[in-house]
């Protein structure tokens, strides 16, 4: 389970949410666009480790996040190994894992309320082109809420299969995960319709 906010006093905890989002966005963009070989991937990984140390979460805190998304990693790596070379599959998966782990760092060191406020303020200028900042903030909050749910689905599926002696095979994981996620999305949409009545 990806845990959320961990109270703390590190510089990352005290930094304004808006600044953190901005830095994260730049980092994520840079990683997506610039990481083209294993050495730059290693550099991005080093930056990530450094950020976790800076937040006082340590290497164990980082490891916990990676373990929490292990089935997502397995799924991604597996699907890509079918079509791509091992090197490319590792690069792609590595990039995504680093970005997810960095996003987790944001929720680990920032209260969601602050996150939403910052998003709300940052999106105000978008009002003119018809974007509702409150909707963007809601979407972000729901994403934060949903990550542990989907990760939980993957663990549940894997546990149930292990209990029945099913070997770890990608297609056995992807299909039920997709079905559960889509059904969850459906149910969640109903709940939002029922509760967010403005």
């Amino acid at each position: 389970m990806i845990t959320l906010y961990r109270p703390g006093t590190s510089i990352l905890h005290r930094a304004p949410a808006g600044v953190k989002i901005l830095v994260l966005a730049i980092l994520a963009l840079a990683i997506s666009l610039l990481v083209r070989d294993l050495s730059s991937l290693a550099l991005a990984a080093a930056v990530t480790v450094g950020a976790y140390l800076l937040a006082g979460l340590g290497v164990t805190g980082l490891a916990a996040q990676v373990v929490a998304i292990r089935w997502i990693i397995v799924t991604m790596l597996g699907t890509q190994l079918v079509f791509l070379s091992a090197r490319l599959a590792a690069l792609n998966t590595g990039r995504v894992v680093i970005v997810i782990v960095l996003v987790s760092l944001l929720s680990l060191t920032t209260l969601t309320a602050d996150l939403l406020d910052a998003t709300d303020r940052a999106c105000q200028p978008l009002r003119r082109i018809g974007v509702d900042p409150a909707q963007v903030a809601l979407l972000l909050a729901m994403t934060v809420t949903t990550i542990p749910v989907i990760a939980g689905f993957a663990s549940t599926i894997r546990d149930a299969q292990r209990a029945r002696g099913v070997p770890l095979r990608l297609q056995f994981l992807v299909v039920p995960l997709l079905i559960m996620s889509l059904r969850h999305a459906d149910d969640l949409a109903d709940a939002v319709a029922a509760r967010a009545s403005e």
């Binding site: 149910d187 109903d190 709940a191 939002v192 029922a194 009545s197 403005e198």
Partner: peptide
């Protein structure tokens, strides 16, 4: 008039996982 109505009707679903919208309990 679904919007006006939903403001006045609270709905509890059977699957508690799917009704949680915000990350923490208080939120």
């Amino acid at each position: 008039q679904a919007k006006q109505l939903r403001r006045r009707v609270g709905f509890v679903f059977s699957n508690p996982d799917a009704q949680i919208i915000m990350p923490t309990v208080a939120e």
